[in-house]
Amino acid sequence: MMSIFTIDKVKKTFTNGEVKEEVLKGINLSLAEGEITALVGASGSGKSTLLTIAAGLQPASDGQVLFEGKNINAMNQEQIRQIRASEFGFVFQFAHLVPFLTVEEQLMLMLDVSDSTLKKTEQKREVNRVLQLVGMDHRKNAYPPSLSGGEKQRVAIARAIIHQPKVLFADEPTASLDSKRSKDVMALIRELTKTLNITTLIVTHDEEMLSYADHIIKMSDGLILQNENPELVGRA
């Protein structure tokens, strides 16, 4: 499998007054196209920090985050924003939908943000197609407050993939859902990763969800402890 995303010797140190805390201690990791890589570990192991650095949501203190050969960690805020808007998709623990937009409008907004070149009618068609994929086309005119937790998360997933991102970042996407809905959501992420050939990096603490991942990276104390596929991972 080809890797489009490489994390190279990434370190992250937080400074609180005179106290310095090294949360990531030199992480090496490659993500393969069309596969799901799951980051697991105890709370405070650094998995969420690693995901947010990879997604360009915060800078690394040291090291490189290479997306298609370009180091995100060396880019300015506008360059990173452009990549986030057009190449990345995000699913968070909570759906974080825009409360005053309908389901359809949430997806139209994402196409707008990603500077989609599609015409308005084509955009609507694409939105319908993606809503069908996540099984939410029947609720396209609904507002977030009228959706269940599972439905909201499905819409969040649809929003994350509508602009055909190359990488999908999911931070605890099932943490606010019950067991059945969690499985549905993970099955959906897996199906979309495979059919749309997206590279997915997911953070989860739910052991049950790991069966949906292609690779499992166990983290502890800012280091990668174990990887079920050693070819993809280096050690700090």
């Binding site: 997604a55 949501l57 924003r81 452009q82 986030r84 808007a85 057009s86 990345f88 995000f90 968070f92 974080h96 825009v98 409360p99 994402m110 943000v113 990603s114 929003r159």
Partner: peptide, 13 residues
């Protein structure tokens, strides 16, 4: 603030 953060995260200027 939460909404703005999410909108920024997904790439809104």
């Amino acid at each position: 603030i939460g909404l703005y953060g999410i909108l920024k995260a997904i790439g809104l200027k």
